[in-house]
């Protein structure tokens, strides 16, 4: 006999796990875009400072 309760709880666990990994992916995407914007604005200036210009 199929244990529907166990099956359902596994499904819920999978959704929770997927949401957790989704949260990590979302943070990675936000950080990529956010730090990308910071690099766009300040990157050249920082490189010039490091070059001693």
């Amino acid at each position: 006999m199929v244990d529907l309760a166990a099956f359902a709880s596994m499904g819920a666990g999978s959704i929770d796990a997927a949401m957790l990994i989704g949260a990590v992916l979302l943070e990675a995407a936000i950080l990529y875009v956010g730090y990308g914007a910071v690099e766009e604005v300040f990157g050249q200036r920082v490189v010039e400072r490091l070059r001693g210009e």
Partner: peptide, 26 residues
């Protein structure tokens, strides 16, 4: 994902680590 199924992923650890590493990776 497989570890998260067993409650092995703690966002309190991952989120700050990722905030630093995202900059370091750039």
């Amino acid at each position: 994902f497989l570890y998260a199924l067993d409650g092995g992923v703690d966002l309190a650890i991952v989120l700050p680590l990722l905030a630093g590493s995202a900059f370091g990776a750039r």
